[in-house]
Design a protein around this nucleic acid. Structure first.
Length: 172
DNA sequence: TTAGTGATATCC
DNA sequence: GATATCACTAAA
């Protein structure tokens, strides 16, 4: 049983979507028709202007505009000049929140994941449903989850640094 | 531990 | 226009 996720899946609070996304499969069709699949092993929530770890905390700008937009949209961000990080927007419009794909089952690390899937800036603003190039599949797997503080946001202050908005599939 | 890298935001 | 910052990785 494999189903492709639709807008309804993403049209919920990021704190519900993020744990649900773990265990799902990112599918990516290349230019030559090859399809790559990678199971999601880890996600993180970035939610609201008050979340100092979220890009939207600095206010609505050209870059963060997309966080305020429609759910199911991909937000791709270039970090440190060489790493593409992939997020998906969730929840209501005008509500800046999203889920970062932090790692896959095989490829650990957010930048390795995008490199493997050949995701780059051209995917920014694309939809994750009804899309020919990339989508999410549900094959019915429901892994056990563990939660942990988010990574790489030391600047966000004690509270936001320690909030457990990271969801990881527990290993067998 | 540190270098590498470039878009974005924030300061002149 | 210039600079400071950054949701990272690889190499050592």
């Amino acid at each position: 049983m494999t189903e492709i996720l639709t807008e309804d899946f993403f049209h919920r609070d990021a704190l519900e979507v993020a744990p649900d996304l773990v265990g799902k499969i990112i599918a990516r069709r290349l230019e030559d028709g090859t399809v790559i699949r990678e199971r999601i092993a880890e996600t993180e929530v970035y939610r609201g202007e008050e979340d100092l770890g979220c890009h939207a905390s600095k206010g609505r700008t050209k870059r963060t505009e997309i966080l305020y937009g429609e759910s199911g949209v991909i937000y791709v961000y270039l970090c440190y000049g060489m790493h593409w990080l992939m997020n998906v927007i969730t929840g209501e419009k005008e509500q800046p929140q999203g889920v970062l794909f932090r790692s896959g089952e095989v490829k650990n690390g957010p930048a390795k994941l995008t490199k493997y899937l050949q995701i780059d800036g051209s995917f920014n603003g694309e939809k994750l449903f009804g899309n020919e190039r990339v989508w999410i599949e549900d094959d019915g797997t429901r892994p056990e989850l563990i939660t942990a503080p988010r990574v790489g946001i030391d600047y966000a202050g004690e509270y936001w640094k320690n909030v457990k908005w990271r969801y990881i599939a527990k290993k067998e």
